[in-house]
């Protein structure tokens, strides 16, 4: 095996326009996932993203089996995943099946069904693999960029406009209800926005990789920020930065096995950078906590 670092892909005539499209859609998805991730993580709903992304895999299988063209797949996947989000929330709110059990059920059931559908439709392992882990730069096809951009910008706008309500129902649903805020409506809204984000991003990032974009930036930002607004802002920035790093990394690093050239898929690269960022943020927190502890100790001794 030979490792090749080539900056040519970034500037080649064939790939550069695709890369720009990937950058636009990817950045928007990364930001959407990060800002939605903060309330999801704080509400202990992190697994919703995971459940929905597995449903996304199943939806992609159905679209592939129906032979829907690349650009129109979202017409099939979007309604399926959004309906799954609403059903998931209603199920767990009604208390008939507890939230975590409902999600575990959906995750495994959807992946199993998806795999069966891929097999029945006679699609190879390559299709299964790319819908789970995302595409590489070399296999990138021009998808429906316009629709993705409209949807992602819509998610961000709704989030910003309803920011104060989202804070209220995340921090204290009982108080929010007493002040006349319909907490279950906003819960469902957050789940639907999450579903939209997952559908927009899953072709490129991969359906099971995308839920990492929901939890990692939120967790990293929560290590280093103390206010809700700054947690959201920092999560969005970290997520955008890590997407850029992951995209460039996957474009630049190539492996040669004899004559065969392969490159890394984008999704796992982005997720790896997110993992590194979280470790870094945990490190920063440990160091500052220690410094604070020492300061408090010194102050205490002085007072004696």
């Amino acid at each position: 095996m030979q490792l090749v670092i080539s900056f040519e892909t970034l500037f080649s005539e064939n790939l550069a326009p695709l890369l720009v499209k990937a950058l636009v859609v990817g950045l928007l998805t990364a930001v959407c996932a990060a800002i939605l991730g903060v309330p999801l993580v704080l509400k202990r709903y992190s697994m919703i993203g995971d459940g929905l992304s597995h449903m996304g895999f199943c939806a992609l299988a159905i679209a592939a089996a129906l032979g829907v063209s690349e650009g129109k797949q979202m017409l099939i996947t979007m309604p399926l995943v959004v309906v799954a989000a609403v059903v998931l929330l209603l199920l767990s709110e009604s208390g008939k099946i507890k939230g975590d059990a409902a999600i575990a059920m959906l995750s495994t059931g959807a992946v199993a069904a998806g795999y069966v559908i891929y097999s029945v439709a006679n699609k190879g392992a390559g299709d299964v693999c790319s819908s789970l882990f995302g595409t590489s730069i070399l296999a990138l096809k021009s998808a429906d960029v316009t629709l993705s951009v409209i949807l992602a910008v819509g998610v961000i706008l709704i989030f910003v406009l309803l920011f104060s309500k989202i804070f209220a129902i995340t921090f204290d649903p009982a108080f929010a209800r007493s002040a006349g805020t319909n907490a279950s409506f906003y819960n469902i809204l957050i789940a639907v926005l999450t579903a939209v984000t997952i559908v927009v991003g899953m072709k490129m990032i991969g359906s099971i990789m995308i839920s990492a974009l929901i939890v990692f930036p939120a967790l990293s930002a929560m290590r280093i920020c103390k206010r809700f607004k700054s947690v959201i802002t920092v999560a969005a920035l970290l997520s955008a930065l890590n997407f850029c790093l992951g995209l460039v990394f996957s474009a630049v690093i190539q492996f040669k096995f004899g004559h065969q050239v392969s490159s890394l898929p984008i999704g796992p690269c982005v997720v790896c950078f997110n993992v590194l960022t979280l470790l870094l943020c945990m490190g920063i927190k440990a160091v500052t906590d220690r410094a604070k502890g020492k300061k408090a100790l010194a102050k205490g001794e002085k007072n004696k």
């Binding site: 704080l42 509400k43 202990r44 104060s164 309500k165 804070f167 209220a168 921090f171 204290d172 009982a174 108080f175 929010a176 007493s178 002040a179 006349g180 805020t181 929560m222 920020c225 103390k226 206010r227 809700f228 607004k229 947690v231």
Partner: peptide, 27 residues
């Protein structure tokens, strides 16, 4: 003006006091 019983999820919630108080105006 409702002051609910303390909820366990709030223990590690990242929010400033100002943000928390201001959320009382949502209604």
């Amino acid at each position: 003006g409702y002051l609910p019983q303390q909820q366990p999820g709030q223990a590690d919630f990242p929010a400033s006091v100002k943000e928390v108080v201001l959320s009382g105006c949502q209604g």
